[in-house]
Each structure stands twice: as C-alpha cells, then as structure tokens.
Design a protein around this nucleic acid. Structure first.
Lengths: 339, 339
DNA sequence: GCGCAGTTTGAGAGCGCTAACAATGGCCGC
DNA sequence: GCGGCCATTGTTAGCGCTCTCAAACTGCGC
C-alpha cells in the first residue's frame, strides 16, 4: 500500500509483472481469478500489486474486452424523492454487482435531449442503460434507435421489447382508494399527476376501478404536476368544494400542498376531509397532520432494474418478476367520513 | 443517421476513414477540431460519420490520451435535498464542460468505505473527484493517499491543500438569527445538526456570534441529525419550554418535524413561536405555516465545484472565489416576538 | 527557376490490457 | 521408460484511438 509520488505515472501491469518476475499475462490471470495459477505465484503477484499500489486501468480493460462494467442512468429529475430513491437503489445494486454508474440528467424531456443523453452514455460504452424518467411514445422511438445496448425503463407503457420494470401503481391506487371507501367516504377526489405520463394514468386507472366496483361516481381527476405548488393551487379548488370529503393525491408532495390549501380554507384534516398520498417520502410522517400514504419500495425497484439490465447484457431470458406491490401506511390524515 | 443492425459491431474510425477515403488520422483530426483540414475533406469525413452513425470509443480515447473526460462524485446521501441538489448542479456543470459524471455512494462514511469509493473512481480513471459528503479528519487522510487525482470537497474544514468549496453556512446562520433578533425575540434556540460535522458547527457558530453581538444568552444548541424525525423528537422538548419564542433549525427537514411538535403541543406558529429553517427545500413554501428559511444556491455550488476540479486538472492556479452567500426567504413561520 | 514557409495529409508506434494460441514441465499408466 | 494428459506460464496480436514525425503539396519572393 505504498503512497505514490505526486502525480507520477501510475504503475501498469508490466510493472507488477516485472516485480513479481512473471509475465504480464499471469498478472492479468491473477486479477481475473483464473483457476490454474500456482498458489505461490499468485501470492507473489498479489504482493507486488500491493507494494506498487497497482490498480488496473479500466479504459484499457474496456478497450480490450469491450466490457465497461458500467451502467448508464438517464434521469430527468432526482431532486424529487421518488427518482432519487430509485437512482439510489440502482446505484447500490449496480455496485454490488461490480458495476459502476454513470449518470446523465435531462433538462427537458424531448426527443433530442433523450438522444443526446443516450449517445453520451453509449460513447462511454456503458453496457446497459436504466431510464429513470417519464416516457411517452416518442422516447421509445429513441430506444429503438439504440438497439445495440440494452435499455430498461422504469415506468412507462409497454411497447415492443421494452417492458418497464415498475411498481404496480394501479394497485397502489386501489389500496389507497379502498382505504377511503372503507372509511365511508363517498366523494373521493383524485389529485393526479400530469396526463400522458404512464404513472399518472396508472394511478388514475386504479382509483377509477375501485370507484366503479363500489358503485361510486368518479369525477374527473384534478390535475397537478407532482409539485407541492400544484397541489396547493388545485387544492384550493378542491377545498372550496364542500362535497368532497376525501382526496387521494398521486404523490406526497402534492398532498402536502393540498394540506396547506385545506388548512387555509379552514377545513380540518381528517375531521372534514381525509387525505391520502403516494410515495411515503421521509417527511410524510411529519406533515400536519401526519400523512396516510402508499409506500413504495424504491430500493427494491432499483435492484430489479439492475437485475433486468444484467440479464439483458448476459443475453439471459428476460425475467418477468411480479410487479412490486406497494403498501398502505395509515397515519392521521385519513379518518371516517363526516356526516 | 443510419440505424445499426441489431447488436452489430459499432463502426470504428477506420470504417469512417475508408468511406471518406482518408486516413484514420485525418478522421481523428476532424473529430478533434484540428485547424488545418481542407474544408471539403472535413465535409467528406463528417458525412461519412453521419452515414455510419459513428461515435468515437471513449475507452480507446481515454487509453490513448489518459484523459477520461469524466468526473467522479462520492456522495453519502442524495436522498436529502441538499446533497441531491448539489449533485444535480455538479452533474449539470460537468455536462456543460463536456465531462461525464460517475457516481459512487457510501453506505457508511468511514475510512475504509471512502478508500474503496475513491479506488473505484480512480480505477475508472476519472480526472477529478468531487466529494458530496460530510467529512472529518480521517477522510482527509484518505484524500492525501490519492494525491495524483484532484479532489474537491464540498463543506468540511480546511486542511492542507484541500480547501472546501462551500456555502457560507455561518453567514446563513447569522442572517437567520439576525432576522429573529430583529423581530424582537430574546430567547432564540438552535436546533443543530449532528456535532463533528463542519456544516453543523459552522451553523452553530454563526448563531452564537449574533447572539453574542446582541448581548443575548446563547443556550446549548439542541442536537438533531438532519431528519424530520429528530426535529420532531427534540422539538417536543423545545415546545415544552415556554421561554423559547424562536427556534432556528439547521435545516428545513428538522424544522418540519419541529413544526409538527409545536402544533401538537398547541403552540401556534408564528404567534407563540417563530421558526426559521435552512435550505429552502421545494416544500418549504407549503409547510404549515409556510417556512421562513435560508436559501442556498446549490446549482451555483455545483458549478463552482466543477470549476475548481477543472482548474486543478488543468494545473491552473487554484481559484478562491468568495463563498456563496445564502439569502433569507421570509414566509409565515416567523413573526414578532409575543409579549 | 529555386528555396522556403506554411498547409494538408499519412505512416508508425504505443496507450494498458486481454484473447488465443503455444510452450514447458510434471505425473500418470502401461 | 515413453506417450499422453493436465497444470502452469509465456508469446503474439490486437482492441480503437492519438501522438510524433515525416512526406507531399501549395504559393510566395527573389
């Protein structure tokens, strides 16, 4: 574990080989866990590696093997909890599998930006790409254009080969809505995410299904854009409608904005209005009142993404695990319907 | 912009050269903006590149030049807003400078984990490293062991060559505390971050300074761990103390927990107690009540980190810009002291 | 008409590693 | 005591790019 001189050329495999009195190839074999190496040779090599503080040059390795041991991630927004947590899970799972993670974020999510991001990653010869970004039809065309690198998407509709690894958003919605139904609510509004995004639509779908099953009327969802601000703004209208006694928000941040709007309108939660969110962000338990919400296991999601890309990289049959089912976390923002 | 056949070998520079009827070296020159190329030769090459959808192999480039055009980022936690925003800024600034970003996160922040993370990045031959992680003495020893790659840290104390790029936390504290002083508060508590972290200590320092200047007593800070939960737990004690009419929390999440604790204790904000946070997370404006807080420009911070590493990479003299001064955002959680 | 500076292109070597093949030596059975 | 097999190591040739050096060509002044 020697310290290197300041900015000196790092040692190469040849240096190690010389010191250990073997050929470079033998060093390479030791590094790659080749089976037939005499134990004492291996030891000599390992010791030389240690003495020189040698670390293999990834670029050379990549060039020689055309395997970069790197996964690319394209994200639109990891300032929000969901994407960030997914990124976290992906990065962690990748690390455990011996892969590094290279990340590119998009400012806008249009065709050109996607293409650019993908090109960038492909140029870094990533072995696979995980998309943590909302998608629509046009982005899928982009994936198709990059058909020599496996792409795994994280929530989107299914087209062609690109099946998404996703949480069962619709099921989460059903759970949330059912909870409100069971509490006796009959007018259950939905504060949805922006249309044309699969996650939004899935959540709308689940909510509609339960209302239909139960024979309740399904009003048009009120549309937000995932931000607390939008939750607050459309929440004010919701707050003004005295018929509404329960709102299921498509994520916790909008729910938070909604809580403020209800508070300002003098409507008590949960006595007058029940609120249920989605995500279980760390702050959910500390909102006023603590938010009932649907918890998603983002870490597991990330793990699955990595499993899926690695499978694709290894040309293994694509595994189709059951979607991850979210769970309901009941806190204080939901209660029996008033009468 | 031809589509490639499924999983075929991507085109190389030689392919482009052949098609354009020039030598590979000329293609390389076109790619690297070499000045003396006849315009029509350049056009032929560019066209060939376009036709083949050629993209240079980064690994080969890195190997030949030993420049990877990649910056490594070590982060402990980018699920919190601050680190995530900083990462965002770094990644964005890096992208603009033509650099990619490779990220490694740490589960624990001990010596070994740091070393491992650094090794990993060095192995990917990153040209520089940005640390988005709390540091203490031991981590600095790690940096010193990697003295052939420039490291920029983002908040930590200064030791040796490793001066941190940071926001002026102490000044932020002063601004927040002064605001409360000006509102007439005389008992101003501080809900601090965990000790031994520079950011925490800086913030404690700024708060102490203003109290000292003003001749107010400085109680011991109440210690949290940045989470809303800790804010809530220690907040309950704070709420029980009727003398306290103002609390300055070292971040917004703890402030959120505190707000809940105060609410549950029946203490009104801001009529009975004023609360000021730090960070201006996107949700701050939608807490109950909307939180007065200190805004940090994380994007600028990220930009500066990249500027700093790039300077170090280019062996330019280290620039020492003024620390970024945060600004106060007054909302509804702070008001005149009751009497 | 010749030399020279400057422009434009190409040839050869090498970055650090691994894949493929070849070579060595030891041990076995007969 | 010899062929054959296996364990163990070495040799050679790239991976795709850029560096350095050198060649060819242009136009200019004298």
């Amino acid at each position: 574990m020697a310290r290197q001189g300041s900015r000196s050329r790092p040692p190469t495999m040849a240096d190690v080989a010389r010191l250990a009195q073997v050929s470079p190839q033998t060093v390479s074999r030791v590094l790659n866990d080749y089976a037939f190496i005499r134990p004492d040779t291996r030891d000599r090599v390992l010791q030389a590696i240690d003495v020189l503080d040698y670390r293999p040059n990834q670029a050379a390795r990549t060039l020689a093997t055309s395997r970069s041991r790197t996964i690319g991630v394209v994200a639109t927004d990891y300032l929000s909890y969901g994407p960030a947590a997914a990124l976290w899970g992906v990065e962690r799972a990748a690390g455990e599998a011996g892969y590094g993670v290279s990340i590119v974020s998009l400012r806008e999510s249009n065709h050109r930006a996607f293409t650019e991001a993908m090109q960038r990653l492909v140029g870094q010869s990533v072995e696979g790409i995980v998309m943590i970004a909302p998608q629509d039809q046009s982005t899928h065309e982009v994936f198709d254009a990059f058909d020599n690198v496996p792409v795994v998407t994280l929530s989107s509709f299914e087209t062609g080969e690109h099946k998404p690894i996703m949480l069962d958003s619709a099921e989460g919605s059903r759970i949330a809505t059912r909870h409100l139904v069971e509490l006796g609510h009959t007018v259950i509004a939905h504060l949805s995410g922006p249309p044309r995004f699969t996650v939004s639509e899935e959540r709308v779908r689940g909510w509609r299904e339960v209302l239909a099953e139960t024979g309740l009327a399904a009003p048009e969802p009120v549309v937000g854009d995932w931000t607390a601000e939008s939750g607050y703004l459309v929440g004010r209208e919701l707050a003004a409608d005295r018929h509404v006694t329960a709102v299921y928000a498509a994520n916790d941040r909008m729910a938070q904005g909604l809580l403020l709007a209800l508070h300002e309108a003098g409507r008590r939660v949960p006595q007058d209005v029940s609120v249920v969110g989605f995500d279980d962000v760390p702050e959910a338990a500390y909102m006023i009142p603590p938010l009932t919400t649907v918890r998603q296991d983002f870490a597991a999601l990330g793990r699955r993404c990595i499993e899926a890309v690695l499978a694709l990289i290894g040309n293994e049959p694509r595994l189709e695990p059951d979607p991850l089912v979210p769970t309901l976390v009941v806190r204080e923002s939901s209660g029996p319907a008033p009468r």
